[in-house]
Design a protein around this nucleic acid. Structure first.
Lengths: 229, 229
DNA sequence: ACCTGAACACCGTTCAAGT
DNA sequence: ACCTGAACACCGTTCAAGT
């Protein structure tokens, strides 16, 4: 379809990083990440597939720019409640939501840092919760990294799985010989029923342990018996 | 190089899934996962690139078969100590090692289950630890999933990062405006220093919380106050 | 200054043909 | 029964040419 003179004038906008990210997110949401090829983005933008190279260095940069927007959106409207534990849970769930919807884009951040003019908000808020909890200063960084790894990691894994593959895994566990795999056989039917519930269970484990460590510190002062974590 | 009659006779072995997996792991260990193309595997095996299709359905099946071997190897020589907590830690570290070395192969398991004739051992042992801990029956499955997700997820993330990208992330955090990102700025210099230490910190959080839940249960009997995890 | 379009250097995979 | 080799349908990316 060639643009008729005048008629599609309003549509014939100039290409920009913003528009490219728009197109990327639109295609992924409608047809999945594997559909978001550069040729497809070109078609979506009504432009030659290679035209985007005038605005981004490579495809990775598109994904990183998309991630920045997604993380900024995930932090939007967040209101702290005053309970660091409730806040940390809420922030983790927001991050998980973003990663579940766009695992490909957000995975690109790992290798291309510093591409987040807006997306650092979430991380700052999470660390704020940890400091507010009263965790020892030198545990804040590893605690942040552990939570970050848990949230990102489980989201990546959960995003790759589907109801079908989970069912296949259960079947595989169920059909195992009971004598060689007694524990896996016993748990087989209950496993992978609800990834969100499992995520929350593990998150609560971490939060409970963090609370215990912070409380133990405030009660015992300097001398902490279980320091060897 | 055409095989000289007799001389290379011993080398001219029949292709098999075993040999294909051998070649795949060898190439990945020497040159990285992106080098392990089918054309490269063909060269490695001294065979036409497409010859492997006689023995596997697609490339994914090669990765899954490799994962089976890697997980089986990771469980080799494991000896329980009698302490479920120490055992669980040891098993998690074994799994992490396998995933760190071959993230691509092990990620393939997510979508192609039941390809593990030998690799289920680790999962069975982990669940054994959780049952031995005295965790309520209905928490064994989510606890297993949480630990599995944590181990796999953090390994995938850590495997993608390098000392350089971690340094870049620290620099990005450090150069943030302190007034807009007070917490991230404060933690910037300490973060991403030691991924293994951060992994262990998070693992210990989970183990401590699991122990507390199991202990609370054995003391309080049926009536548990904090059941809403 | 920005976009086009041909071309390049790859992928995984299929399939008829060889032995 | 197994392997070969040409071919297919894709990728991301480069670059000279157009406007």
């Amino acid at each position: 379809m060639r643009p008729m003179p005048g008629a599609t004038e309003g549509m014939q906008v100039r290409l920009s990083r913003e528009l490219i990210v728009d197109a990327y997110l639109r295609v992924v949401e409608e047809e999945g990440a594997e559909a978001a090829t550069l040729r497809r983005l070109g078609a979506e933008l009504g432009v030659d597939p290679t035209a985007v190279y005038r605005h981004v260095r490579d495809k990775e940069e598109i994904l990183a720019a998309a991630s920045d927007r997604l993380l900024a959106q995930a932090a939007e409207g967040y209101e702290p409640t005053g309970s660091w534990r409730a806040d940390l849970r809420a922030l983790a769930l927001r991050a998980r939501g973003a990663y579940l919807n766009h695992p490909h884009a957000l995975l690109a951040l790992e290798t291309s840092p510093a591409a987040l003019p807006n997306g650092f908000r979430l991380a700052d808020l999470v660390i704020g919760c940890l400091r507010e909890a009263g965790l020892p200063e030198d545990e804040v960084a590893p605690a942040f990294e552990a939570i970050e790894g848990y949230v990102i990691g489980t989201a990546l894994v959960d995003a790759r799985a589907s109801e079908e593959t989970r069912e296949e895994w259960r079947r595989a566990y169920t059909s195992l010989p009971r004598d060689r795999y007694p524990n896996l056989s016993a748990a087989a039917s209950q496993v992978y029923r609800d990834p969100d519930a499992a995520f929350l269970y593990g998150l609560e484990l971490m939060l409970a342990a963090l609370e215990a460590r912070a409380a133990g510190r405030s009660r015992a002062g300097r001398a902490r018996p279980r320091d060897q974590v």
